[in-house]
Structure formats: structure tokens, C-alpha cells
Nucleic acid binder design. Structure first.
Lengths: 152, 152
DNA sequence: CTAAAAACGTTTGACGACAAACAAAAGCCG
DNA sequence: CGGCTTTTGTTTGTCGTCAAACGTTTTTAG
């Protein structure tokens, strides 16, 4: 006797949010496994990419863009800085803020990581057609584009 | 001087995974806010629905279906049981497992929660057309339908 | 039938995330 | 200018999650 998986999803069956959650779990699982050798998580990867693309940005700017609490970012940057990938440089114009920059080592590691991430995306979304992928991206953007009535 | 949001996303621009992550954050934010009065999170909600739809299921079956570690489920069920919404009932046929069932109170609360969740889904996905919603759901299902090469 | 292997629920430890409180600095406004 | 408010980075506390180890029970092999 082994009534295996097939449970009824009940109310969850119709919920897009539930599917989104499952997809997110699959995503994270594969990403984590693929980037484990680099000790890089999705969040860390996002931070590195953004620092590369916007050298000198502040912690708040970074936090907002990847939608992370600024307090969370502290430990994350401590980690990356501890590994010599990122540097916090006190801003000369605003003594409250730090300018974030990638080190040479950071740039080098990121280059390698990007290739892994590219493979990872292919693995996850490769089963979809190119137009399906574009469509998925478009729809996801629409979802997080927040301008819903904040009348709560 | 206030260089606001507009940061370049760089490499993230093209990644579906990044969009998925952002959408997931938006989802969780709205869900959490909408269901806060009930002290119900997305994960708890999933558990309640699944127990309702598959009364008597085991913890492992539940954990697998919502893709949660079985150790995580322990605390979650402790919480729900503590609030009198769920009951753990030792299985008569397999002394290792518990049969999970909803209490009357659990069923009542879940009914209310479902309505809130329905509103929440409308809020998040209502900006999409019906066909877009169906498409999104289909694509997300395809993503988490794991059967990618496990050659890693 | 019996010994080894697997499954189940639990405990403990680690980690990432948020929220609240804080000090320092910058911005605002009389 | 001079005081209040806001912003920024940090610390501390809490929570949800996974992973590993454990005892009990079931399943499987020989």
C-alpha cells in the first residue's frame, strides 16, 4: 500500500499564486544547486549584477531595486565583502552612504557565474518556446508592476 | 540631487527568473497583508486547503505536495493545532504516521480565508485578461513540472 | 523469520529574510 | 542660521525554511 503523490489540490487548483510559488521553489532549487560551487544565491547574484551595472550605487538604491530590506543587505554585503568580491567605499558627497563597487575578483567571479545562470535559465525555461518565454516574462512583469488599489 | 530608482538591471534584465522572484515578492506582500487578520500565511493556507481536500492525509504527503520540508511542517502544524484549526490523529494502520484533519473551527476559518484569497488573486492578477491569466498559469505549471536532466 | 534498509515524525542547528529601534548625517523650513 | 524631520546604515530580535541526526515503526531481502 503506497498511495503515492496524487493528492487533490482542492482550492489551490485554480490559484495562480500557488503555481507561482511552486515555480519559484523549482527555480531556487536549481539555481542553488548550479551556483553552489560559487557560494552564490539568487539574491547575492542579483546584488553582484546590480553593483556591476551601476558601480558606486548606495545600499538603499540596491536594496530597493532587488526588493530587499536594507537590514538584510547588511549581512549580505558583509559576506560578499568578506570574500573580497565587493567593496564598500564611503561616499565623499554623502557621509551617510557607502558607494558599492565590485573588486576585480568580483568581476571575474561574476563573469563565470553569469554563464552558469544562463545555463540554469535554459534548463528551467528551455522546455518553453521562445515566444512562450517572452510571454511569461511579460506577464510576470505585469504582475509585479504594482499599481493596484491600496485601499486596504 | 536624488537619482531615484532608475537603476540599470544589467544582466538581470533578460532573466525570467528575476521577474519570477519579483512577482513572488509582490504576491507574498499582498497575501500577507490581506490574510494578516487570520494569522495565515501562504504556506499555512496551502496546508489548510490540502488537509480539507484530503482529510486524513499524512504529514509526509502534505509536505511533498506543498513542497515543504517535513521538519518545517512540524512547527507549522504545531501552530495550527495550537489554534484549534487542525488535529493530528495517530493512524491506526501505520503507527509512524499521523492523520491530519480539520476541526470544525478550521473549516469555518478556511471558508473565510478562501474569500480573502480570492480577492487577493483578483487584486494581483485582475489587471491581466482572462486568457492572459490562463496562459500565465499554464506557463508556470510547465516550469515547475520537473523532468529536466538531472545530470549535474 | 530475521536482519538490514527505508520511511515517518521530531529535535536541533544554521541561515536568510523582515521589522523595530538607534546614531549619525543630510534635508527642510521657520 | 537652528531646530525638526527624513534618510542611511547598522544592530537586535523574531520567524520561516532547510539539512542533518535520532528513535520508532514499517518494509524489504535473504
Amino acid at each position: 500500500m503506497r498511495s503515492k503523490h496524487p493528492l487533490s489540490l482542492g482550492f489551490l487548483e485554480g490559484l495562480i499564486g500557488f503555481r507561482l510559488r511552486l515555480a519559484q521553489i523549482s527555480l531556487f532549487e536549481d539555481f542553488e544547486r548550479a551556483l553552489r560551487p560559487f557560494d552564490i544565491t539568487p539574491t547575492r547574484f542579483g546584488a553582484l549584477v546590480l553593483i556591476e551595472a551601476n558601480s558606486g550605487l548606495s545600499q538603499m538604491q540596491l536594496a530597493k531595486t532587488i526588493r530587499l530590506d536594507r537590514s538584510t543587505l547588511v549581512a549580505l554585503l558583509d559576506h560578499l565583502e568578506g570574500k573580497g568580491l565587493v567593496k564598500r567605499r564611503p561616499s565623499p558627497t554623502d557621509k551617510r552612504t557607502n558607494e558599492l563597487v565590485l573588486t576585480d575578483e568580483g568581476r571575474k567571479l561574476l563573469a563565470k557565474a553569469k554563464r552558469r545562470v544562463q545555463e540554469h535559465e535554459k534548463r528551467l525555461f528551455g522546455k518553453l518556446s521562445a515566444s512562450d518565454r517572452a510571454e511569461l516574462k511579460r506577464l510576470l512583469e505585469a504582475v509585479s508592476a504594482k499599481k493596484y488599489n491600496n485601499t486596504l
